[in-house]
Structure formats: C-alpha cells, structure tokens
Amino acid sequence: MAYALCFLLFMIGLYCAVVKKNMVKIVLGIVIMEYAVNLFLIMLGYVKGGVAPIIERSQYDGATKAIASEFLNASVDPLPQALVLTSIVISLGSLALMISICIRTYAKYGTFDITEIRRLRG
C-alpha cells in the first residue's frame, strides 16, 4: 500500500514535470519525483518497530567485540539510508544548477513560460 502511494507521488512529479508550462514548476515536479524515490528507498529498509542503526555504548561489548543481538534484530537496514543521503546530495547539486539556469533564462527572456521560450526549433 505504502509502496503504491510512493509510486503515485512519483507519477504526480512526472505529470508536473511533463505538463506544466512554468519552468519553476517543472523543477518542482522533478524534485517531487526524486523525493518519491527517496521515500521508497527509506521504506525498503524499514523494520516494524525498528530502531536507528546506530550502536550505543551499552550495546557493545568491548572485551569480546560483540554487538548485542537485540540491536541486530531490531535495527533498520542502514544501506538505503546511506543511499538516500547520497541521492539527496546529488539532487541538491542538480537543483542548484537548475534554479540558476532558470534565473538566467528569466533574465534573458523575461518570462518563465516555456511556450514563449522557443528559439530552438524542432
């Protein structure tokens, strides 16, 4: 169910990116798509009633170098979280570039409407 909602969010983003005429709204649509994927990744690693995958000092036995088993069973999968962090950084970079291109285009054309920004023909 939750996965279906993620897919719905992805589709809303795609719809926004494809249909909208305003450049900023297109950028927002792309951001929504990326966030839907991030949400999906986070939910993949979720364990019901899980804890954050960070070891506390009390759960680690320094002498035997063993980790308490209740932590291992209860913690959520940390890998998707690492992936999401990386993908957030990437989308931050591409978002910054997209916004600056939008602003530059606005300075040149005086509009955000992509139907009026048409110097390149098919």
Binding site: L92, G93, A96, L97, I99, S100, I103, R104, A107
Partner: peptide
Amino acid sequence: LVILTLAAFRAESQQPTEQDLADPGVRGKE
C-alpha cells in the same frame, strides 16, 4: 557559494556573473 551566487542574481539580474556557469555546488558527491 551557491546561495551567494543565487542572491547575486537578484541584485544584478541584468548583469550575470560567470560564476553560476561553473557552479561549485555541483562538483560531486559528498
């Protein structure tokens, strides 16, 4: 730098700097 550059656009949107083209915020993964 990204925010400084974006703020620069508003101040002098008629005269864009060269900075945004080699946008330093996009250089790679952290």
